[in-house]
Amino acid sequence: MTQIINFAHRGAAGLYPENTIISFTRALELGATGIETDVQMTKDGHLILIHDENLHRTAGVAAWVKDLTLEEIKSHEVGSWFHEDYRGEQIPTLEELLTLVKPGEAIINLELKNGVVMYPEIERKVIEMVQRYELSERVIISSFNHYSLVECKKIAPEIRTGILYMEGLYEPWDYAKRIGADALHAYKYAVIPELVAAAKEQGVVYHPFTVNEQSEMKALIQLGVAGIITDYPDRLAEILLAQGV
Results as ranks from 00 to 15, higher is better:
Glu194Arg: 05
Gly79Ser: 11
Lys154Gly: 09
Leu55Asn: 04
Glu72Pro: 06
Met118Lys: 12
Gly203Phe: 07
Pro120Tyr: 14
Ala12Trp: 02
Pro193Lys: 14
Ala186Trp: 00
Ile107Pro: 00
Tyr147Asp: 12
His51Pro: 04
Glu216Tyr: 12
Glu111Thr: 02
Tyr133Asp: 06
Gly162Val: 02
Phe209Gly: 00
Ala59Gly: 07
Arg132Phe: 06
Ile50Thr: 01
Ala62Ile: 05
Tyr175Phe: 14
Ala63Glu: 15
Val205Ile: 14
Ile221Lys: 10
Lys102Asn: 13
Ile159Asn: 04
Val150Met: 15
Tyr189Asn: 08
Ala59Val: 03
Cys152Val: 10
Tyr86Thr: 12
Glu216Lys: 13
Thr161Met: 06
Leu55Ala: 08
Ala59Glu: 00
His51Ile: 11
Gly88Ile: 05
His46Asn: 12
Phe144Ala: 06
Tyr175Leu: 11
Leu220Gly: 07
Ala63Asn: 11
Glu71Met: 05
Asp174Lys: 15
Glu151Gln: 15
Met166Leu: 15
Thr99Gly: 01
Thr161Ser: 09
Ile239Ser: 03
Asp174Gly: 10
Ser143Glu: 13
Gln202Cys: 13
Pro233Ile: 02
Leu184Arg: 15
Leu220Val: 11
Ala59Lys: 01
Tyr187Thr: 00
Tyr232Val: 00
Asn19Leu: 09
Thr99Ile: 13
Arg138Val: 06
Phe82Lys: 10
Gly224Asn: 11
Ile192His: 13
Pro193Gln: 03
Ile140Asn: 01
Thr58Gly: 04
Tyr189Gln: 14
Glu105Ser: 15
His56Ser: 12
Ile141Glu: 07
Pro103Trp: 14
Leu94Thr: 03
Pro157Ala: 13
Glu123Pro: 10
Ile140Asp: 04
Leu195Tyr: 08
Lys200Phe: 00
Asn109Cys: 02
Leu110Glu: 00
Lys218Asp: 14
Ile155Cys: 12
Glu111Ile: 07
Tyr147Arg: 15
Leu28Thr: 08
Thr161Asp: 07
Glu72Asn: 07
Val116Asp: 13
Ile127Lys: 01
Val196Ala: 08
Asp85His: 12
Asp52Cys: 11
Glu121Asn: 13
Ala176Trp: 05
Ala226Phe: 06
Leu184Tyr: 11
Ile50Gly: 00
Met217Val: 09
Ile91Asp: 05
Ile140Tyr: 09
Gly227Phe: 05
Val204His: 07
Gly168Pro: 03
Arg138Ala: 01
Val211Ala: 09
Val39Gly: 05
Gly104Ser: 14
Glu71Ser: 14
His185Thr: 02
Met217Cys: 09
Tyr147Gly: 13
Trp64Lys: 09
Thr37Asn: 11
Glu53Ala: 00
His76Glu: 08
Ala106Val: 03
Ile192Arg: 14
Phe144Pro: 12
Met129Ile: 09
Glu29Ser: 05
Leu55Gly: 05
Tyr232Asn: 03
Leu100Ile: 10
Leu220Cys: 10
Phe144Thr: 11
Glu238Gly: 00
Gly14Cys: 08
Ser23Asp: 01
